[in-house]
Design a protein around this nucleic acid. Structure first.
Length: 269
DNA sequence: ATGGTGGGCTCCCCA
């Protein structure tokens, strides 16, 4: 007896501004759970009535003023978890996790917004780059220490394109923050704490695959200088249940949209 | 070619 679990993740780049786009996402993907990043809304200003009106009455969120912020909107009942540390001791609203009440038992779900890391790929010159690498390192250590980790999904804007064909030009981007060797090796080390890349499960590694296109392009589709920054990972016990995936490229043309597009994975659990 | 665009929020940060 399995149950469908369809999880969408989207860097929405301001929840309040783009709330009108969520019905489009729901119409296109019919998700059971929506994980958002860069909500940019403090908890006291979170639009508390909106999720239930969209059919997602169960929520968990962590926000702050102006920057960052994550939220999980769910059709499935959930319990918030408070076991993870305050990453890099910054209290900067980059992670929320829950247990989803599936019929077969709980599924653990983590929603991350990894620091973007600034422009200069050097720890000394650019503390934001160091913060990013430290964040990934802390997350790696924490998940490596979770010896009981099972039935777990990790999603989010991880701000790193780990594979050669996760960027439009591998060689040209090797010194561009998001695709530098310390970042890509760090992200794969995190993934190797037990996770399986649920999107590359469906798309061979030699095929180009992007989830983000800069605002700073006249025609994002024509130039197609994308990067795969948004990810869905699952623990091995969920791998056999992987049913399908969608990268909702159409969303990049929605009115007043985000520079990221939604990524969705369906599982049977 | 070192720009370009966009969101939040305040006289500039961040992506």
């Amino acid at each position: 007896m399995t149950q469908r679990l369809r999880i969408a993740t989207w860097n929405i780049n301001s929840l309040r501004l783009r709330l009108p786009l969520l019905p489009r996402l729901i119409g296109a993907l019919d998700p059971d759970v929506i994980c958002l990043q860069e909500t940019k809304v403090p908890d006291e200003l979170f639009p508390v009535d909106a999720p239930a009106e969209l059919g997602f009455p169960h929520v968990a969120y962590a926000g702050m003023k102006g920057y960052n912020g994550v939220a999980i909107l769910s059709r499935i009942p959930l319990q918030r978890q408070t076991t993870a540390p305050d990453w890099c001791a910054k209290g900067d609203s980059r992670h929320v996790s829950v247990l989803l009440d599936m019929k077969s038992g709980p599924v653990e779900l983590h929603d991350f917004y990894v620091p973007a890391g600034g422009d200069i790929p050097d720890r000394e010159e650019n503390p934001k780059y160091g913060h990013k690498l430290d964040f990934v390192g802390e997350a790696t250590s924490w998940f490596a220490g979770r010896k009981d980790l099972a039935r777990t999904v990790l999603v989010g804007d991880l701000n790193i394109a780990p594979l050669e064909h996760d960027v439009w030009n591998h060689k040209q981007l090797l010194d561009v923050v998001s695709h530098t060797p310390p970042e890509t090796s760090g992200l794969l080390a995190w993934q190797n704490t037990r996770f399986h890349d649920a999107v590359r499960h469906f798309v061979p590694e030699d095929q180009k695959l992007y989830t983000w296109w800069s605002y700073r392009n006249r025609d994002w589709r024509a130039s197609n200088r994308g990067r795969r920054l948004d990810h869905v990972w699952v623990t091995p016990d969920l791998k056999d249940g992987l049913a399908s995936h969608t990268i909702l490229k159409d969303a990049r043309d929605w009115p007043q949209t985000s520079d990221h597009v939604p990524v969705c994975v369906e599982l049977e659990v």
